[in-house]
Design a protein around this nucleic acid. Structure first.
Length: 757
DNA sequence: GAGCACTGC
């Protein structure tokens, strides 16, 4: 495995100059983890079975110990010394933190025998035998007929499979095929008399025999609730997948339900949090609400109520009237601790420094954090001192309608999510979870989260399948087969982009597209840009679009006005995509950027600053301009990666249109988004046609006939006169149907790309 | 004139 773009990559490995070869210890340091007594059982069952489904709740130690255990104890790795173990994770942080923890337990430097591989940061070397990687990294590394047999691995462990992400579902399917191809009838010389195998597996078998590949063992790790899904899926006619349940390690968690339904869930959560604060000893409170709006208003109410309580000398009882009274007032900043508690909001669109507040030590006069959070605290962020959880039972989800329009809805969570949320307390000592719904309602929750594949576009998945040589996508053995209609739609998209030919076979152009780790539509735009002589500009645009949330828009009214004023500087007359470009180009010109994960960041800053003292450090520049520094940093990495890939595709990556070539750039964007064009509807106040009272309005109709409005966050919002034709990046329904990423194009181009109109 | 949850290549 080679390191990704070494000049940029963020965790350099110290070259091993020592002549003594590194080795792993025979055992991990002794511990009281609940999984330890099960170790021999796991190894034994993986001997008898090809696949093992391990279930347990949090804190069993499976993620840290199982990969090491299998590598050290299973005979496969004694018989085949070159084989490795990998463990997939749905999130990047899990890979880096677990890999670093396990390598420290084994006293080997991270990135030598134990490493991780995530996008922009491959911390593995050829000597790495145990790796943690994201599902998508494993998918990317297996994009060929040979690659999908996962030849370098003797065991693949799929962790957090119950989350059912698109990536891990697809990894399951591929790993199952590889497992059958590598393990199935070992005792036969050829497969000629086996009729039960699909032609797909038969062709993989030919490669296995030719390359003499050793068997492949599979471990699926999941929450208890969905073990059956996986054991059924991974069982083959002659081999059962073994289910092993391991106890988790958490303290006792008491769960309370409401006896009657609550009317307003935000008020209910505020009241419950406050009662917990008043009547229970110290320890943090974590409250789950669906979105930013609810969180901001709950934070406001709580701060206000705590202030009143403090002023009244802590004697007052929390009444429902009190909660009602403070509701719906203007939000102002009240961040100092009141009544011994500090109330903190937590959601992804907060600035990094605001998010960091939850990890700051508490001031002297304060003994409790009350954190009001979205789903971000359910899996992605671990808060260590939470003793109490308040769960609204709701979350926001993006749902695709039949016409492919995204709708953001507040929905009831699953039982699995409710358990996960409650489990956020009781990590350090016994906890208490209050569910703001009745037990009867809970019984009606769907058992598990909806698999991501149900709502997602399949174009990228199908393209990936084609590069792997999977020909029959309709009959492919998915963990959960998508509808044929959705698969055909994906093929239709790929055909429109000329990634597949009329026989639905991948074209050389499609092969190129598959190399670019972005949405197929963006990949097409990047590849088209060379013909327009604007590769540089399009790379920047696509990188910024895939980073999302570039503009930081605060909730506080005065701050929001300041932000809007700063953002005006970047806004381009032509619309949102050129504006994003302008942010990046200005950022590049005016700041020094040092990758924060590189060593000696401060020193590097000083060096850079003394040589070019006109520039200011990136975080400072970003906060000054109300730009999300995390997003720009991500765009920067994405751009770097795309640039590298384009270079390898022999594209002229230096091609740039400059300021004179603006029209070419816009036309290129128009071609790339030519399936997402909207035309202005001319609303006439006078009934006679062609009357002078016709005024351009911000009302548009897409080519597919959907009536849409320009989103208020767009630079094109309330533009007068409104351009007659625009392209957009997304349709989203909230209170109205909005288009975002709105960019002005010429009407002539519309007819050029759609001659049939 | 709104107000977008969360991941990942």
């Amino acid at each position: 495995m080679k390191r990704s773009h070494s000049s940029h990559s963020s965790s350099p490995i110290t070259p091993q100059t020592t002549t003594v070869p590194l080795s792993l210890p025979d055992h991990l340091p002794p511990s009281s983890l609940p999984i330890i007594p099960y170790h021999s059982k796991i190894v034994a069952s993986l001997d008898k079975n090809d696949c093992c489904v391990l279930t347990s709740s949090t804190g069993s130690g499976k993620t840290t110990t199982v990969p090491f255990l299998i590598y050290k104890e299973h005979r496969l790795f004694k018989e085949h010394s070159k084989l490795k173990v990998t463990c997939t994770q749905p999130r990047r942080v899990a890979c880096t933190s677990v890999a670093s923890y396990v390598s420290s337990l084994c006293s080997v430097p991270l990135g030598t025998l134990i490493g991780y591989n995530i996008r922009f940061d491959n911390c593995t070397t050829p000597q790495t035998v145990i790796s943690y990687q994201t599902d998508y990294m494993l998918l990317r590394s297996s994009s060929s007929s040979y690659g999908r047999l996962f030849p370098e691995y003797g065991c693949i462990i799929i962790d957090e499979a119950h989350e059912r992400s698109l990536g891990s579902d697809f990894v399951c399917s591929l790993v199952k095929q590889a497992m059958i191809a590598r393990n199935y009838p070992r005792f036969l010389k050829d497969d000629s008399d086996i009729t039960s195998l699909s032609s797909e597996i038969k062709s993989l078998r030919r490669i296995v025999r030719k390359r003499k590949l050793p068997p492949l063992k599979v471990i699926v790790m999941s929450a208890t609730i969905s073990s059956e899904t996986f054991s059924k899926y991974f069982s083959t006619p002659n081999m059962q997948a073994k289910v092993l349940s391991i106890p988790g390690k958490t303290h006792r968690i008491d769960v309370c339900y409401l006896s009657e339904a609550c009317e307003d869930f935000v008020e209910g959560c505020v009241e419950a949090s406050l009662r917990l604060h008043c009547s229970y000893e110290e320890g943090d409170i974590l409250c789950f609400l669906p979105g930013r709006e609810e969180i901001d208003s709950a934070v406001y109410m709580l701060r206000k109520l705590l202030k009143e309580r403090e002023e009244e000398g802590k004697s007052s009882y929390v009444s429902e009237d009190k909660v009602e009274e403070v509701k719906g007032k203007n939000i102002n900043v009240l961040t100092e601790p009141t009544d011994g508690a500090v109330v903190l909001p937590l959601y992804s669109s907060l600035s990094p420094s605001q998010q960091q507040q939850i990890f700051l030590p508490l001031p002297a006069n304060c003994h409790r954090r009350i954190i009001i959070s979205t789903n971000i605290a359910e899996t992605s962020l671990t808060l260590s001192n939470v003793i109490y959880v308040v769960d609204s039972g709701l979350e926001k989800k993006k749902v695709l309608t039949q016409t492919g329009v995204g709708v953001l809805r507040t929905e009831v969570i699953s039982k699995a999510s409710a358990v996960q949320r409650s489990g956020r307390c009781g990590r350090v000592r016994p906890g208490l979870a209050i569910r703001m719904y009745r037990e009867l309602e809970f019984e009606g929750f769907k058992p598990v989260q909806r698999p991501e594949i149900e709502g997602a576009s399949l174009s990228n998945v199908v393209l990936l399948m084609l590069t792997m040589g999977i020909k029959d996508c309709i009959n492919f053995d998915f963990l959960q087969p998508p509808s044929e209609k959705k698969l055909l739609k994906a093929f239709h998209t790929l055909h429109r982009l000329k990634a597949v030919n009329d026989s639905m076979e991948i074209t050389p152009y499609g092969e190129k597209m598959s190399k670019l780790p972005v949405d197929v539509e963006w990949a097409n735009l990047v590849l088209k840009s060379e013909g327009y002589g604007c590769v540089k500009e399009v790379l920047t645009s696509v990188a910024m679009l895939s980073a999302e949330n570039i503009f930081y828009r605060p909730t506080d009214e005065r701050e929001a006005a300041k932000a809007a004023q700063k953002h005006r500087r970047f806004s381009s007359f032509e619309g949102d995509i050129p504006s994003l470009r302008s942010v990046y180009e200005t950022w590049e010109k005016e700041t020094i950027y040092v990758d924060p994960s590189l060593p000696n960041v401060a020193k590097r800053y000083r060096q850079l600053q003394s040589s070019k003292n006109l520039k200011i450090p990136s975080p400072e520049w970003c906060s000054r301009n109300y730009i999300n520094s995390r997003s720009v940093a991500k765009a920067h990495s994405v751009r770097f990666q795309l640039h590298d890939i384009c270079k390898n595709l022999y594209m002229n990556v230096e091609s740039s249109c400059g300021s004179e070539g603006y029209v070419d750039y816009l036309k290129c964007v128009c071609e790339g988004l030519s399936h997402q064009i909207a035309l202005r509807s001319v609303v006439s106040s006078d009934s006679s046609e062609g009357s002078s009272s016709q005024r351009p309005q911000g009302k548009y109709k897409t080519l597919s006939g959907i009536e849409v409005n320009v989103h208020p966050n767009s630079t094109m919002f309330q533009r007068n006169p409104a351009p007659s034709a625009v392209v957009f990046t997304e349709i989203i329904v909230t209170k109205k149907t909005y288009i975002t990423g709105v960019t002005q194009v010429k009407k002539d181009w519309v007819t050029e790309f759609h001659p049939d109109r």
